[in-house]
């Protein structure tokens, strides 16, 4: 598995991909810095909610989409996936290192962005910063497993991911109450709330147990779906 993990890290660390994702993750940090420098900035709570919402609801899924969907899409488009599947290793030992590779590239960027953003918007409050970072990493893991699966299901994973993020997570989960039970954004926000109730208290949140259970369930289900897909697909 180590060889596939290392290969995936190298594949997902292309210059342009990293540049775009670093720029995206830098956005909330820059906003936090600007906010501390501007005297007549909007009230803290509104600003904090807006920036965290942008990081968790838009930037994070887009960054993970750009990275995780490529874990298999690139191999399929380049027709190199057969190098891995024509080896005597179980299919899960191909899926898991690919997924871990995607998480390993995305999570540090998102975590650093979360820590720096938290530092500026919460004025160094360690508990708030920790909750933001942990919640963001949980979301990275969940989005990664889904977008890795999408990458092996279709070469149009980016389109699927954009639809999912903007239609489901950004729009429907805000206006249809039941959708929050199937929203990664809500899972991660609920976990943030569990770590720091002062900052992230919201009546719309799920209980911590439901959020953790649902997160584990989503991870396992999409991991198994990916393994099943790799077993059944015609490898180009």
């Amino acid at each position: 598995m180590w060889f596939i993990y290392r290969l995936t890290l190298r594949q997902l660390s292309g210059r342009w991909r990293l540049l775009i994702t670093v720029l995206l993750t830098a956005l909330p940090v820059i906003m936090g810095v600007v906010h501390t420098l501007v005297e007549d900035a909007p009230p803290d709570h509104d600003f904090q909610t807006g920036v965290v919402g942008m990081l968790a609801g838009v930037i994070l899924p887009l960054v993970v989409l750009a990275i995780a969907s490529a874990a298999f899409t690139n191999e399929i488009e380049d027709r190199t996936l057969a190098n891995l599947t024509l080896t005597p290793i179980p299919r899960w030992k191909i899926i898991l290192p690919k997924l871990l590779g995607a998480i390993s590239v995305a999570a540090p960027m998102i975590a650093i962005s979360g820590i720096l953003t938290g530092y500026f918007i919460y004025e160094g409050d360690v508990q708030a910063i920790a909750s933001l970072a942990v919640g963001a990493v949980v979301a990275v893991v969940l989005y990664s497993v889904v977008f890795t699966w999408a990458g092996i299901m279709t070469t149009k994973a980016i389109g699927f991911g954009l639809l999912y993020v903007f239609l489901w997570e950004v729009t429907l989960s805000q206006i249809v109450p039941g959708v929050r039970f199937l929203s990664f954004n809500h899972y991660s926000m609920s976990i943030m709330q569990a770590i720091d109730e002062r900052r992230f208290a919201d009546e719309d949140m799920l209980s911590t147990g439901v959020a953790i259970g649902a997160s584990v369930g989503v991870f396992v289900i999409f991991l198994l779906l990916s393994v099943r897909r790799l077993r059944r697909m015609d490898v180009p």
Binding site: R79, A82, P88, I89
Partner: peptide, 15 residues
């Protein structure tokens, strides 16, 4: 997959 320990495959794609 276990069979691939005994098989070598070179596909037509040169990538």
């Amino acid at each position: 997959p276990a069979l691939y320990a005994r098989i070598g495959v070179m596909s037509e794609h040169e990538t």
